[in-house]
Computed example of a mutant assay.
Amino acid sequence: MRVVLRIVLWLTTIFLVLEVTGTTHYLSYIYENKISPLLSSQEVIPSISNVPNLKLPNIESESNFVGINCIDKSDVVAVKQGQYYTWRDSDGTVHFADQPPDVGDYKHETLPDSRKDYFSLSFDYKGRNFPPYFNNKAENGGKAVIKAIEGLLPNQVLAKTHLQVTIYNNSKAFHDYRIQHTDISSSSINGFYSGRLNQIMVLHQGDDKQTIQTTLHEITHAIQAKQFARAGGWFTEGVAEYFEHIETLGNSSFVPINEYYLGFLRNKQNRLATRHLLTADYGQWKGSMRSKYYANSWALSYFLMTKSRRNIMSEYLTHIVQNKCEVIDNIRFFETHYPGGIVKLNRDVDTWLYSDHSVPNYH
């Protein structure tokens, strides 16, 4: 009898340990090593964790991120009209250009379509000559993030923003700059956005894909700091996690599902109630439950970016931009704008997590 009891006790102990620690290692491994996307969520689920070593998004500090230039309207930009010049030379050849000729007659034409001119983006590569495919991927990805956010907002609500991205290949040079120009104490980060300097600094550590994702994450933070400073943690981190995976396809872009977060959240003990997520203090993203906050913020952001709900995300962004200096009441907004309120939103996100995700979000 005693032997049987010992066996039962032993098996129960093992079961409890697996229940508690069966989720160890997953997200920390993702952030420390970025598991290959060739692995399916089913292959990774057995090793999900509390993530004590999860790297946080590397903004300089919350004080430099929340409320930046909330009353600065001096650089609001309206719609920019496309224009070109045309003329015929002495041989009868017709020329088209964005500048007129030095001499001779020409016509000044305005394009029938207009385009927004809210953002400019420049890159500076230090330490070595990065291959053209890397430069193109980083720059096209950054422009795709900007274009996607622009597409969610009406004309004449955004402020003009110039984003400067510097990518280092040399760790010492990167950290020397961090120490000299910011108050960031961590020496383990590989990228950060400084709100005070309005600069994005990224360290390339041999992994092109990870470096590009870090760059896109920080570009999103820079846009948020300028345009959406008081949106709250779920939006700040969830949307940055969302856009770091954006891919370009011709003139369009798309964001595939994050299989790692999807697998993590299909374990119901990792789900956070939407009401709690919307009201949580931003500091909680840095606490012991940070893995759950990041994953749930990503899920809510991705869900609201799906085609059938994107109008609600668009209304949310417009509301934030038009009320920059106010702390956003997320509960009131979603109770008012989401059909069925937050209870229905929470239920719909749960259902979405178990739906088919073969078609990505296109922008």
Rank of each mutant, 00 (worst) to 15 (best):
W10R: 08
G233D: 01
V157T: 14
D208V: 02
Y242S: 04
V94T: 10
L11C: 13
N58E: 15
W10L: 14
E315Y: 03
N135P: 01
S186T: 11
Y302T: 13
K137M: 08
M1C: 08
E109R: 12
V239W: 05
R266M: 09
D176L: 08
Y177K: 13
A173V: 06
S253T: 12
T13I: 06
I68V: 13
V17S: 04
G127Y: 00
N136C: 01
S63A: 14
A240Y: 01
S358M: 07
Y193T: 01
V17T: 10
R266F: 00
T248C: 04
L54Y: 11
K80S: 12
Y125V: 07
E247D: 07
A231E: 02
N311M: 10
H276A: 08
D105C: 06
V51Y: 08
I7Q: 03
Q99V: 15
H337R: 14
E109G: 05
S288V: 15
V76T: 10
V44F: 05
R309Q: 15
I219V: 13
S355I: 06
L18S: 09
L5V: 14
I35A: 11
H221V: 06
I35T: 12
N136Y: 06
S49A: 13
A240E: 07
E244F: 05
M201I: 14
N135A: 12
H276F: 06
L300F: 03
Y177E: 12
R332I: 07
H108T: 15
N140G: 10
D75N: 12
P57Y: 01
L277Q: 01
V327Q: 10
D98T: 15
G206Q: 00
K55M: 14
S74Y: 07
Q227S: 06
Q42K: 11
K226S: 12
L262G: 00
S120R: 11
P101V: 07
I320Y: 04
W285R: 03
Q180P: 02
V349K: 00
F192P: 02
N330E: 05
P52K: 13
H221G: 02
K292R: 11
Q224Y: 02
F174I: 03
A231Q: 01
H337Q: 13
Q156R: 13
Q213C: 03
S194A: 05
L277D: 02
P57H: 09
T86Q: 12
T214V: 11
E32D: 15
